[in-house]
Design a protein around this nucleic acid. Structure first.
Lengths: 340, 340
DNA sequence: TTCTAATATGCAATCGATTGCGCACAAAAT
DNA sequence: ATTTTGTGCGCAATCGATTGCATATTAGAA
């Protein structure tokens, strides 16, 4: 079955024309007669012609591929961002190449290298938790390849980014808890290095302050924010002499862990302890009670990054000015925090 | 900052040698002296040389990229398979290009086309729910490009595939329910077109038969197997004059829907109705009670597909014999079905 | 009728890396 | 002193599509 692959030269030969004409005909060039175009299309079909983007990419210096680096694709947030990117990218004839860093620095570096080798036209990324050094991303930028960060970004990179207003999201969540009558609100936070956690923490703290609730350091627990971490953190809180009456977790995963612990101990949610997560992961909707959380506008985030990419690609020679887009998060109130 | 990209020719010029030598030096060719190799590496470093895989791909006719098509990346099953593929592929210097069909036929066709244009060296796929026509996949096969299907495959394609023994998984699940004392076991099934659902149904039915339980058609409900479908199906079952005392769902998602309904109505799980899902999605572990389910060996599945790919690539000229690998699923018993 | 302007297509270089073949020189074998 | 074997590297073609710059043909203008 292995037919030799047909090229534009094969098509040209059949029609006694040159490859130039075939190339132009296939691209619907205005200076090629309709007659020739039709003939070319017909022969292309017959020969089972398959355009070779590799050859075109080499010649043009553009691969029409956008590389995407996400920590992991199996988080609905990230896959939703990817979908948002694809929506826009596809309309501009771009394809995407999704890569996972698995939140691992080395893998991230290797991935960036692979994407550069593959000569992608741009990279859209959210960096790994383990990343502290941004040289690999700087390299991308210095090669003049558009780089756009989303969700997790770093100031030192000085590239365009799309994030949500983590501060505002956290602030609203905590304000909501206060409105529900909560007075001792705990907070689960992640690695300080990642700005989203710092911002969420800031929102938490300022909301407390603005409502006259004293900040209690013992109520803030840092961890890796996975389910198990949430369990552990909750246990710590319960062992306090004065346990909290609410938990605002900077991640849905650790909020779920906390919920498990509370249910195991027959502590009522939200009456005894109210819970709010962050991320609007699908499982927050499955849980019992359903978890109040904050939606991160993943689809819009994807759209926005892709649009910035297209802008940057379009403005090749103009001086580059990093652009920071901040999306408004949305508090989604569900049973886990509704006391009234 | 936009430096011109350095090529092997630039390196060659600096050293007064030819590009051939540089190319060989970079690939550690034995016929190049260590001295030259060192010099080349040094200059490459200095010029910030970045290999151009596009050029190499064009010349070699191999892109060293494997295209992966999954319905959606945000299902832990699929992302885990991808991870399994990457593990193996990376060791053989292959990179992967993950694409999502969003369970949409048109998008799947377009994706296959894009991957062919990108000249991937092989395609690993699990087809979309909406796919009934396999011409696009046949095209891949007929072009002599290795195509391996996983999880969802089709006999008519006659390509290698890796699946789990859905029949066995279902059989074991139902047998387990029977052992727990269940007598009226319902079943949620998906589109008949997809063989995994047919097989799971067959396992269900034969397990009943082998244990002397009569098959009752009214207990089998077909749907799209999402959370909402599970809710709806459960409601239907509850409205029967003789409701079931167990549900075996061919998907974790619809099992979760059923669980929600049962909890809302204060029907005890597993005492009144026992539940078993399929897939071992992470949320089955979060649920209350935790859901008994069947693990699909996603990582191994990925490993296996990648290994088959490498085999096929290695055996370029030998006659192609499709190879079917069947993995053994594992029943994971949790609270939702443990009556004893 | 001669000249200008479209119109349709060809020529040939180019993108960057790879590789079979060949050549020169040196070391080893006869 | 030849011949053989090996080492280190250059030459030039190749992969397939693209495109600036001709060229040939025809239609319209002067």
């Amino acid at each position: 079955m292995r037919r030799e692959r047909a090229t534009i030269h094969d098509i040209a030969k059949k029609l006694n024309i040159t490859a130039s004409t075939v190339s132009r005909a296939l691209k619907n060039h205005p200076r090629i007669s309709d007659e020739t175009k039709k003939a070319v299309l017909k022969v292309a079909e017959k020969l089972n012609y398959q355009p070779n983007h590799i050859a075109a990419a080499l010649r043009n210096g553009r691969s029409k591929i956008i590389g995407i680096i996400v920590p992991t694709a199996d988080r609905s947030f990230f896959s939703s961002v990817v979908r948002g990117i694809e929506e826009i990218a596809n309309t501009a004839q771009y394809n995407v190449m999704i890569c996972q860093s698995y939140d691992n620095y080395e893998k991230e570096v290797a991935t960036v290298e692979a994407l550069l080798n593959a000569r992608v036209d741009g990279i859209i990324a959210s960096y790994a938790k383990g990343t502290e050094d941004f040289d690999h991303f700087l390299k991308v930028k210095n090669k003049g390849i558009p780089l756009i960060m989303f969700d997790r970004s770093s100031e030192e990179l000085e590239v365009s980014s799309v994030i949500i207003d983590d501060y505002q999201g956290a602030y609203n969540a905590v304000k909501h808890l206060i409105n529900q009558g909560c007075k001792r609100i705990a907070h689960f936070t992640g690695i300080k290095k990642i700005s989203i956690y710092r911002e969420r923490f800031r929102g938490y703290r300022e909301a407390l302050q603005d409502h006259g609730i004293p900040y209690d350091e013992s109520l803030v627990i840092g961890s890796n924010m996975q389910l198990d971490d949430g369990r552990e953190s909750m246990l710590k809180l319960l062992s306090l002499s004065a346990p909290p009456d609410a938990v605002f977790s900077a991640s849905d995963y650790s909020a779920m862990g906390a919920m498990q612990v509370l249910k195991e101990r027959n502590i009522r949610i939200p009456q005894d302890i109210a819970l709010v997560g962050f991320g609007n992961e699908p499982f927050t909707w499955f849980s019992e009670p359903q978890l109040t959380t904050i939606d991160q506008r993943s689809k819009q985030m994807g759209n926005a990054t892709a649009e910035i990419f297209l802008e940057q690609i379009g403005a090749k020679n103009k001086p580059f000015v990093p652009k920071k887009t901040v999306l408004k998060p949305e508090l989604i109130v569900r049973k886990s925090s509704q006391r009234k």
